[in-house]
């Protein structure tokens, strides 16, 4: 009999899933699809929200500003603050020069310091041979300086200069008497042959106190200038050996105690002596001494 009840009669639900329902369930059971739902959909949602929000210029500016602010705050933290400058291994003048070159307005954040550039700047100072920069504990910028050591005084066109073993100018010098301990050199290109000049000085021996200085001649060879306007002309090659020979001549015969103007050693086989005009009568002795050395 037909059921009279309205609800029971018309629609008895079919338990079978519809085609769409069935496919939906199968799709939801597909592992890759589930992974997509679990990861892809939230990511897409977040991307959409972020892009919509960033679409407005003031939001973008806010982001940039807060980013910059955060960076600034981080830089200004006390852990990164450099408050003092500590320069070691330099003379007071060099220290002042380094301070002037670095030109720091302390305190400063360590993020704002370009140590490499600062090192190059410090090493550009003539008196500084090598510089090591580092930020030490307690917010100290430590600058360790290896200064250039002057080994000679160079008399140039624009006054006296201190010069180191590598031929680099260290500092100007006011007067020769300020550094009597250093030898004097002169002439164009003298700084390029500093090693040879130092060897010559080292070999001076008894002639040492009499040396006034070394003069570079024609950027090629050295002249040793002694007191009493005497000169030793050294060859371009083997100058220290030739000078040792001159020293030996002085030790053996006291050559430079006599009235000579110059000893020319440029030709190794034939040392030549130039006599002073004030001593013509000394010629026989000199002759004898020359024959003596010639043997």
């Amino acid at each position: 009999m037909q059921s009279l009840s309205f609800f029971r009669g018309a629609t008895r639900r079919d338990p079978a899933p519809s085609r769409l329902d069935y496919r939906m369930q199968r799709m939801m059971l597909t592992p890759s699809f589930r992974a997509l739902l679990r990861v892809g959909v939230p990511m897409a949602l977040i991307a959409i929200i972020v892009s919509v929000w960033l679409d407005r210029p003031e939001n973008r500016a806010l982001v940039m500003h807060s980013y910059a602010q955060a960076i600034q705050n981080l830089h200004n933290r006390p852990e990164f603050r450099v408050a003092t400058l500590d320069i070691t291994g330099a003379s007071p003048e060099t220290t002042a020069a380094v301070r002037a070159v670095l030109h720091l307005s302390l305190p400063v954040s360590s993020f704002d310091l370009d140590l490499t550039a600062m090192r190059h700047a410090v090493e550009a100072i003539p008196a500084v041979r090598d510089a090591t920069l580092g930020i030490g504990p307690g917010g100290t910028l430590q600058v360790a300086i290896v200064p250039r050591v002057p080994v000679a005084i160079w008399r140039g066109d624009d006054g006296l200069q201190l010069i180191d073993a590598e031929g680099e100018l260290v500092a100007p010098l006011a007067a020769r008497t300020d550094r009597l301990d250093l030898p004097l050199i002169a002439g164009d290109g003298a700084s390029d042959a500093m090693a040879e000049a130092l060897q010559i000085y080292a070999a001076a021996g008894p002639l040492g106190p009499r040396i006034r200085g070394l003069v570079r001649m024609g950027e090629r060879r050295w002249d040793v200038v002694l007191d009493h306007d005497q000169r030793i002309l050294l060859p371009a090659d083997g100058a220290p050996r030739a000078f040792e020979r001159a020293v030996a001549m002085q030790q053996a015969q006291g050559v430079f105690d006599r009235a000579i103007v110059a000893l020319d050693l440029r030709n190794e086989d034939r040392p030549t002596i130039r006599l002073s005009k004030a001593a013509p009568d000394a010629a026989p002795e000199i002759k004898a001494s020359i024959t003596g050395t010639g043997q």
Binding site: P17, R19, R26, L29
Partner: peptide
């Protein structure tokens, strides 16, 4: 077809596997 779908759907649901 409906009956097969019913059975397969229920079994898949129990297995939690397609």
């Amino acid at each position: 077809e409906l009956a097969i779908r019913t059975a397969v759907k229920a079994a898949q649901k129990m297995a939690n596997l397609r």
